[in-house]
Every structure is written in structure tokens, then in C-alpha cells.
Design a protein around this nucleic acid. Sequence first.
DNA 1: AGTACTTCACTTTTACTCGG
DNA 2: CCGAGTAAAAGTGAAGTACT
Length: 335
Amino acid sequence: MNMNRFTIKDVAAKSGTSIRTVSRVLNSDPHVKKETRDRVQAVIDELGFKVNIAARSLRDRKSNQIVVFADRRKNAFLGGFHNEVVLELHREAKTQGYRMVVSVSSPEQFEEDENDGFYLVQHGLCDAAILFDPHEGDRRVQYLREHRVPFVVLGQDKSSYQTSYVGLDNRAAGYMGAKYLHEKGHAAFALILGSEASGVNQDRAEGFRRYQREKGLDNQVLFGLTNIESAYKKTQSLLEAKSVTAIFVSGDERVVGVYRAIQEAGLQVGRDIGVLGVDDLEMGRFLLPALTSLVQPKQEMSKLALELIMEQLQEEERVVKRVLFVPTIAERESV
DNA sequence: AGTACTTCACTTTTACTCGG
DNA sequence: CCGAGTAAAAGTGAAGTACT
């Protein structure tokens, strides 16, 4: 017995009702007189009674818990985009009656790491999972499959193509960004983005290049942005070469570095050099000038991810749905 | 709206057997 | 009669069923 906590038995005794009635009150069963309900509720409040979720999980054979796995990065666990998505996911999970825990896991060592969310999976403390950006041959995908944990992939999915997946159409994003800058009067502009190994970046580059081909342009794609500082340096060298009038930056966070380099060169963002971001992070609206950015519909994506999980939890056989969202443009002042 | 009872999945305790 | 081995029982809290 748990000595420092009360059970529905205690509540029943103290309120002069039965366990069955307390259960009815807890589960909002309508067949309880208001007077009785109030009395039971008063005792619940007085004792500080909380339902024992371990017992409830035992009885219901589910944990009502979802784990979100983020890939471990070198110097940050989550990027700005993931950060905002996690907030949305959390909100959605809550409306569905699920608790959500965020776990940082590297694909290499998760099995030995008892602080990893996979620990919860192993021990039956989680019903489903959301996995950010698994890469090719990601063992975590295999692991979740083997343990028959329903999951949805968010972001990029290079693991396989038999998972439920929600993401952005990054080819369209690359194409749209190029088109937008071109139509705004820029002929010479560069796309700067992260690692070439990332599928997201490959797709964005591909879309960007397709637009170049269609319009007979020859603008560069520069990979290798690892952080804000490298965005800063990359911009410096672009400005020194006087080769561009606009910069298309993959990832709003990095724009901070881009802005600084532009301003230090005595130039003005939006007037002398156009800057276009991707993600539409909240911070973009507060940069000066406010950042124009391709929008990833984070709320819709999160909502759909949760829906896909709920579907999988309800269906017997595995449901696989793959959905790409097409970005829109939040036009502000930077182009 | 109460009574009595069952179920969930698993651990710990108890009760008992058997070889030496 | 000791210790090991094993089978059975008890216990955990919530929530539902069937009935009154």
C-alpha cells in the first residue's frame, strides 16, 4: 500500500459513499446526484486524492502516454522548428487525453540508455511514439516496429517508406523560395542550407535547382550550415564576393547570423539584400526588418500526426499514411 | 446509488515437496 | 531438518458488470 497517498477506497469511506460511486464521480458518470457528487468531490479535494495512473493503466491496458523522440544533435537537442512543433504536439496530445514526454535519443546508444524514452517503451509505459527525422537505416524505426509501438515520423523520413509520416514538401519549398525571390526582382541569389546528407536539404536544393533550370538561371546552392555562426560566415563571404542580391536561408534560426553579417557590411536587409527564411518561427516577426519566411504549418502537422497515432491505436492492423504539406509564404519586410 | 465481484499484469509472499 | 526448488495465493487500485 502506498502510505502517503489516498485511494478511491479512502475517498469512499470518508465521504460515506461506495467505491462504485467515487468511480462514477471520477469518470463523470451522469447517474450521480449533484449533492452526492459535490460531497465526493469535496473529499477528493480535502484529501488531495489523485487517481493512481499505474493502477488505471493496469486496468485499461494502456499508459495514455506518448513519447516524442528528438534526434540528439551536436550542440542542441532541438532546433527552433522542433521546439515549436513539440509545443503544438503537446497541446494536441492533451486534447486527446494523452500525456507526452520528450525524449532525446541518439540512434546509436538508445538501447543501453535507461534515461532514454525507449526505456518507457520497453517497460510498457508508452502507447505510441513520434519520431523526428530518422535517417537512413535508423535503428530506432526498426526497434519501434519490433516492439509493435505505433509511431509517426515527423520532419524528414529517410528511414524507409513504410511508416506513417507527416512532413513538408521540401522540393516545393526550394522551388517556391527561388521563384519568390526571382519574381521580386532578384536575379542573383543563393540558397544556403545545412548538411548535404539531410534529406530535407537535398529536397530543398533539388526544388531550388529545378527552378534555376526552368528559368535558365545559375544560382548556387551552398551546403554546410551547421549553426548560426556558419550562417554568419557564409553570408560574409557572399557579400565580399558581391555575388548576390538576396539570400535564401534554410532555417529561420540561422537568419540571425545572416542579418548580422549584412548589417556589419553596412547594408540594409530588405533594401540592399533580400533575405528569405524557412520555418516561419515566431522570432522571425520580431527581427528588424521582420523576416519573410516559408511557412511550415506546424499546428496542422502536429494535429495530423496525433490523428494518425490515434488511428493506429484504434485499428488492429498497421495504418500507413504519408502526408506532405505544401508551404505558404509569410510575407513581411525582409525581401 | 449501493453491493459484491471481476479483471487487468505482474511481483512478492506463503506453503509445500523433496533430496540429502 | 536444512536448504533449494516450485507451485499457488495474495496483493496492488481503478473501473466496469450485473444486480438490487
